[in-house]
Nucleic acid binder design. Structure first.
Length: 158
DNA sequence: GCCAACGTTGGC
DNA sequence: GCCAACGTTGGC
């Protein structure tokens, strides 16, 4: 990564029952697979780069919210689960020479002392424009600004 | 468990 | 290309 690279910031969502920040702490790194939405796929394939910073969000949790931080450690590559007939994310329409779905590798950085809840995020005026908080926003991978990333980290340590 | 907001599928 | 039906997401 050179000095000219502009670091980017993202929210990755996961249901903690499926894969939590604690799982990532245990594994140290993981391939982020199973994303089956084209807009999120485009981010993973074309936007997310090594060194980018990630807010790790727990969805369908009590409470839902940001549980910690991860960092991208490998650029996008084809998601192997799309070719695995035994995997719930198998996609019969995807071809090996033209993969439809991508994932990146992320590395554990930090588990917050407490989850910064969605409810708290909504009370923060500085986060009003954050993609995560927009009505109907359901993407599992979405971009945020550096300021938003830093601010959520501050909240986690206050 | 409910349901609103989306995305996808498939008939036409 | 339209759009109704259906499936999924995810907060509450």
């Amino acid at each position: 990564m050179g000095y000219t690279d502009a670091m980017q910031y993202w929210v990755f969502k996961s249901e903690p029952g499926a894969y939590s920040i604690e799982d990532l702490r245990r594994d140290k790194a993981t391939f982020w697979d199973g994303v089956r939405n084209y807009q999120a796929r485009n981010f993973l394939r074309d936007g997310v780069r090594v060194g980018d910073q990630i807010l790790f969000y727990h969805s369908n949790a009590r409470p839902p919210g940001v549980a910690g931080i991860a960092e991208v450690s490998k650029d996008g590559s084809p998601d192997p689960t799309q070719f695995d007939t035994q995997d719930p994310h198998y996609d019969a329409h995807s071809k090996k020479d033209k993969p439809r779905w991508y994932g990146v590798t992320i590395t554990f950085k930090e588990r917050f002392p407490e989850v910064v809840s969605l409810a708290q995020l909504r009370t923060e005026k500085k986060l009003r424009r954050m993609t995560l908080l927009q009505p109907g926003q359901r993407l599992s991978v979405m971009p945020i600004t550096r300021d938003e990333f830093v601010y959520v980290c501050t909240l986690a340590h206050t």
